[in-house]
Design a protein around this nucleic acid. Structure first.
Length: 469
RNA sequence: GCCCGCGUAGCUCAACCUGGCAGAGCAGGGGACUCUUAAUCCCAAGGUUCAGGGUUCGAAUCCCUGCGCGGGCACCA
């Protein structure tokens, strides 16, 4: 949109508004004002009226986006939407005068305006600001999506999320809840003495998980770097350094395909607690889920996608071997066990379940069980057929850790691009001594999906990736 | 990466199967209306039918290629 763009080439709906803008400027109206003070939000104005004994309140000054307009001769109605809701505006010719009333009728849906007047119900009972004066704050040059059907086109919804937020109020509430869930988790962890930290996004060795990383390049260092796939190894370095309870909520990046359940960048919570083990992490996980549901205003016995679900702790615990035996009748171990579990069991676990006792082969950073070294002290929290959390008693033995890295390196050499990379610096940290530690990772996006009843991850991410590459 | 589906006015959708002047509602323009709230009524306007190529007297429609989006598969411990 520049001056050089010929207005005549624009679609009619846009051209008309552009001409309207030029007319306003010619009349001496500033169409983009620098500041405006409101006395009340729409919700505040409604509350004020609610509290008033005689049915009249104010006057108030509200501001927001004009959504619809209903002309009625000498009287006009409009709906004003702000960050907290909507309120009706009533504009009367005999109050505003001929000129102002005419200017009010010339406003377009989408325009941002401020309006002042008393708050009172109409005869039909609609709480309204009875406009005594109003100001155009920002002229809108594009028509809003259809007022009845809203914005449906999914591509536009995600690419122009601001339109989605204007036209589809439910979308806003999902992201409000997302923010509250994250705040609640921070409050929970802060209250337990955890320290929030930030660790590198650009890493030389993208460890802590099993995924293909994104590659990038640092010009000055002449060095290839990777975007992190997990937070784990840096947070454990901090525990070595004496930060006994740390957590980070941050974006991680995995170079994988897209689906309703996968976005290549997503938000992970990881926390590490010295002198705790994976049993402690289970209890912490339960607290986090309860806090998230509370922040979302959802009861613990609720539903997801039309199917009931019970989020009340304690969550069921089940050994992976037992689950696979139930599903297949077979007694499996190692990678075979994990593959059978993922294919046949995980998609069918609905109510929250701690799946425990993972094979050591697929858990290079977790401590072995004392009673059976083929398995590690690890769990994943599965609900609605998806993994929501992953935790273990951390491996603290640097000799064992080195062997595990070597085993992963062998797999990598054999062509497994996602095998865990060898991290010599992390080993050095372990050699100084990591206290017994429990660690937990939680997929924030999936947790938000669960407590907001959203089916697709891109509905809890404001600007989701739309196409691979 | 593979398979299937979709792409028409600013928005929501018809017309496509079975080729024959591209239509409606909302939004926008003009008019009427002082209690509407999907306001209503009258008038006029609005299109590179995703792009390119092909078949045909004639393509939104049939065919091919590309692009975009969705769904599924693969991948994702």
């Amino acid at each position: 949109m520049t001056d050089s763009e010929p207005i005549d080439d624009l679609p009619a709906a846009l051209r008309d508004r552009r001409q309207k803008l030029e007319r306003l400027i010619a009349e001496g109206v500033e169409p983009y004002v620098g500041r405006f003070r409101r006395t009340h939000t729409t919700a505040g104005a409604l509350a004020l009226l609610e509290a008033s004994p005689d049915g009249v309140a104010g006057p108030v000054t509200v501001a927001g986006r004009l959504m619809t307009r209903r002309g009625q001769g000498g009287m006009a109605f409009a709906d004003l939407q702000d960050g907290e809701g909507r309120i009706q505006l009533v504009a009367r010719r005999d109050v505003l005068g001929e000129g102002a009333h005419r200017r009010f009728l010339q406003l377009d849906p989408g325009d941002l305006i401020g309006a002042s007047g008393p708050v009172r119900r109409t005869r039909r009972g609609e709480p309204s600001v009875w406009v005594e004066c109003f100001t155009l704050l920002s002229k809108s040059l594009r028509p809003l999506p259809e007022k009845w059907h809203g914005l449906r086109d999914v591509e536009t919804r995600y690419r122009q999320r601001y339109l989605d937020l204007i036209a589809n109020p439910d979308v806003r509430s999902v992201f409000v809840v997302r923010s509250r869930v994250i705040s609640a988790i921070r409050a929970l962890l802060d209250g337990k003495g955890f320290l929030e930290v930030e660790t590198p996004v650009l890493q030389e060795v993208p460890g802590g998980g099993h995924a293909r990383p994104f590659r990038t390049y640092h010009q000055a260092l002449h060095r290839e770097l990777f975007l992190r796939i997990a937070l784990e190894l840096y947070l454990k370095r901090l525990v070595v350094g004496g930060m006994e309870r740390v957590y980070e909520i941050g974006r991680v990046f995995r170079n994988e395909g897209l689906s309703p359940k996968y976005n290549p960048e997503f938000t992970m919570l990881e926390c590490y607690q010295a002198y705790a083990d994976y049993e402690d992490m289970m209890r912490l996980t339960e607290e986090i889920v309860v806090a998230a549901a509370g922040a979302a205003g959802r009861p613990l016995v609720t539903s997801y996608q039309g199917r009931s679900i019970d989020l009340r702790p304690p969550f069921r615990r089940a050994r992976m071997v037992d689950l696979v035996r139930e599903a297949t009748g077979r007694e499996l171990a190692g990678v075979e066990l994990a593959e059978a579990y993922e294919e046949l069991v995980e998609p069918n676990l609905w109510d929250p379940t701690f799946v425990v006792d993972y094979p050591v082969e697929i858990s290079p950073l977790a401590r072995r069980r004392d009673d059976d070294p083929r398995f590690v002290e690890r769990f994943e929290l599965v609900a609605v057929g998806r993994e929501h959390a992953n935790a273990f008693t951390e491996l603290t033995d640097p000799i064992d850790q080195r062997r595990r890295f070597e085993a992963q390196a062998a797999e990598r050499a054999a062509g497994d691009e996602e095998a865990h990379p060898f991290d010599e610096d992390f080993l050095r940290a372990l050699e100084y001594g990591l206290p017994p530690t429990g660690g937990l990772g939680v997929g924030i996006d999936r947790l938000v999906m669960l407590v907001t009843d959203q089916a697709a991850i891109r509905d809890v991410i404001l600007f989701p990736q739309l196409k691979e590459e």
